[in-house]
Amino acid sequence: MLIKKTKNSDETENNVTDESIFNDRRRIIKGLGFAGMGSLLASSQQAHALSLFGSSDEDSLFKTRELSFSKPEKYQIEEPLTPELKATRYNNFYEFGLGKDDPFENSQSFSTDPWKLVIDGAVENPITLDYDDLYSLFDIEERIYRLRCVEAWSMVIPWVGFSLNKLIAKAKPLSKAKYVSFRTVFSPKQMPGQKSRYVGGGIDYPYREGLRLDEAMHPLSFMAVGVYGKTLPPQNGAPIRLVMPWKYGFKSIKSIVRIELTEDEPKTTWSMLAPNEYGFYANVNPKVSHPRWSQAKERRITSGGLLNRSRIDTQMFNGYDEVASLYSGMDLSKYY
């Protein structure tokens, strides 16, 4: 191990879109003036449903390995899991492309070892973790969490990793620390979306996310190094990603290389790109619609067909009521 000091719920189901949200959400990207985006998105969307169930050359796939972990009972929820094939082939990861199947198709040669994760900023003990540390520094465990995408689809996924609060505590936050900023790896040679405004959606990379410190320290906040019992594949955020089960999926930043504690609220990628649509908090809230679609219901991706139209009611905080006290007294339609 290497540790270096360095520092409106009233809306009807008919108003809830499904696959159309995939295109609708990206209308803002088209609005930024990127020529050719429409045809790119169309071709990607047509392809993703087919490739999800297609066969691949196993020799060309990113190699994962089995992990050893505990299974705390309180995190083994009794809900059907999303099949691994769907959870690993239906992804949003714009660094590898805008289509749902692009992350899988474009990431299999992604290199994750060596890797460095820096934790610094307003801390007493800045640290740098290497690749092996990610799996050995803390005891790892499996947590089955619901994942709710802002696009109104959801999954149930068994993540493997450790509590974010353990990592932050090891860095010893200073009293002035109020927020936690996250940054993904910047690797244009390996991530086509980072070198092309057409493939990557015009985002100013590297991708950034942030939390209040009390959110980050909540026991549910999780750093995943694996999924379905194995190390993470790149399309799911290898080698380490954040999982915030009560927030929309875009908050769960992937392939993290830096965690910085700050005094001020950090800028985040989607709130910079479309502040009227994607706020800093991004808590799952069925009573607050996205400007262009309802959040009252969601399409759960299960063992049925990918394009199934079954709907379930969205729960406040995605059903994780234990986090409600973090937002006591806040107007969650204002702080969305």
Rank of each mutant, 00 (worst) to 15 (best):
R27N: 15
E322I: 13
R143F: 03
R197M: 06
A35R: 15
G161P: 11
G99Q: 05
D139V: 03
D24H: 08
A282E: 08
G237T: 09
V225H: 01
Q76N: 07
G305K: 14
G279W: 04
L67M: 06
D102L: 02
L326F: 11
P291G: 03
W293Y: 12
V156F: 04
I240W: 05
P245G: 04
T17K: 15
M272E: 15
M223R: 08
G210I: 04
L242V: 11
M272P: 00
V284F: 02
I28D: 13
F53M: 12
K254C: 07
A296M: 08
E11L: 14
L67W: 11
E84V: 03
G38N: 15
I119T: 01
D331I: 07
P114Y: 02
Y336M: 06
G279L: 03
Y327G: 03
F34D: 06
N283H: 10
E79A: 12
R25T: 13
S109M: 03
I168R: 12
S9F: 07
M272D: 11
D101Q: 05
I203W: 09
Y75K: 00
K166T: 09
E141I: 09
R241M: 12
E78Y: 01
L2C: 04
Y131K: 10
P72W: 04
A49I: 15
I256F: 07
S221C: 15
N236S: 13
S181P: 01
A177P: 10
T88Q: 04
K116Y: 04
R146A: 07
S56W: 14
P233G: 03
N92Y: 11
K86Y: 13
V288F: 07
T112E: 02
H48M: 00
G99V: 01
